[in-house]
Simulated scan of single mutants.
Amino acid sequence: MMILRYSAASPYARKIRIAADLLGLSDRIEIVAASTADPNDTLRTQNPLGKIPTLILEDGVALYDSRVIADYLDHVAGGGKLIPAEPSRRFEALRLQALGDGINDAALLIRYETATRPAALRDPAAIELQQGKIDRALASLEASPLSGAPDIGHIAVACALGYLDLRFEGAWRATHPRLVDWLAEFAKKVTAFDATKA
């Protein structure tokens, strides 16, 4: 059995859990919590970066990060399921995955800046820089609604929106009604989205 090292709040680990469910692989993966801050957690020997998600294969090889894991799981499931084989669809799905992951990257940096750094040391310019990335990405998604069967891009965007709900009280919802509607439809189609909510 494969082992997924994860944290419930991680949008990247959530992406993998949803992908595994859609690919019919959930019963082949044991979900094991990891503490990235704990120097005694075996995560650091499994992944030298000490990051999640990390997927431990049955032969002990560790795969990371979420994009590599998603690609591997799609391959195990026969290929072309969540990462389309046809070039135009494939690169659109991968582009959306990069956009969703980029929203998460920026949101995590804001979270670290505001939740872990002492108030006197916080850098408003750094927060504004990251918020600008999120705002532009959301505006782009609002202007061009997502369509088609769920793929890795849709999953990544959904997880990014879920992370904004979790950490930033869903403030994005007030100005992105089409994205709100899309996420509600995604959650109806992909039951693992609500099942993996932190």
Rank of each mutant, 00 (worst) to 15 (best):
I127Y: 01
E128D: 13
E128I: 07
L129V: 06
Q130K: 12
Q130N: 14
Q130I: 03
Q131W: 11
Q131G: 13
Q131T: 14
G132N: 14
G132L: 11
G132A: 15
G132T: 15
K133A: 14
I134W: 09
I134L: 10
I134K: 09
I134G: 11
D135H: 06
D135Q: 12
R136E: 09
R136L: 07
R136G: 04
A137Y: 11
A137K: 11
L138D: 13
L138V: 13
L138S: 08
A139E: 13
A139C: 06
A139H: 07
S140I: 02
S140F: 01
L141W: 02
L141H: 08
E142Q: 07
E142S: 12
E142W: 00
A143E: 14
S144C: 13
S144W: 00
P145R: 15
P145K: 15
L146A: 09
L146P: 01
L146S: 10
S147V: 13
G148C: 12
A149D: 13
P150L: 12
P150E: 12
P150M: 15
P150W: 07
P150K: 15
D151N: 07
D151L: 04
D151K: 05
D151W: 04
D151Y: 08
I152M: 03
I152R: 02
G153T: 05
G153F: 00
H154G: 12
H154V: 02
H154K: 09
I155M: 04
I155V: 10
A156N: 09
A158S: 10
A158V: 03
A158D: 08
A158C: 06
C159I: 05
C159P: 02
C159A: 14
C159E: 09
A160C: 09
A160H: 01
A160M: 05
L161Q: 09
G162R: 02
G162W: 02
G162E: 08
G162F: 04
G162T: 08
Y163K: 12
Y163D: 14
Y163S: 15
L164S: 05
L164Q: 04
L164A: 06
D165H: 07
D165I: 08
D165M: 09
L166D: 05
L166M: 10
F168K: 01
F168T: 01
F168P: 04
F168H: 03
E169R: 13
E169K: 12
E169I: 01
E169Q: 10
G170Y: 01
